[in-house]
């Protein structure tokens, strides 16, 4: 989790990913943030996040993002 938090904070230094859990629902992430995060996660974990994965369930919090990363890495 710490590694993921580091990546997320590097992408969006003005967001507290340890606290926020409505990143998509409340529009805390901007669309350009999302593009940056998806690109960094794909590179860091050698995964391929598709447009089908871009849902509020998967991206509302650091925890849900971690679940997605682990799921995609196992596939």
């Amino acid at each position: 989790m710490d590694e993921l938090l580091d990546i997320l904070s590097e992408c969006c230094p003005d967001i507290d990913f340890e606290v926020e859990n409505t990143l998509i629902d409340d529009g805390i992430l901007s669309s350009i943030d999302l593009v940056t995060i998806v690109g960094e996660l794909n590179d860091a974990y050698d995964i391929s996040i598709s447009v089908d994965d871009l849902t509020s369930e998967n991206f509302n919090s650091a925890e849900s993002i971690l679940d997605l990363v682990l799921r995609l890495r196992d596939e």
């Binding site: 350009i32 593009v35 598709s50 089908d52 871009l54």
Partner: peptide, 16 residues
Amino acid sequence: ASAMKILTSLKTFESV
């Protein structure tokens, strides 16, 4: 133009 770039960056049209 930035909005178009976002849809392309997220490979939107490969799915829908």
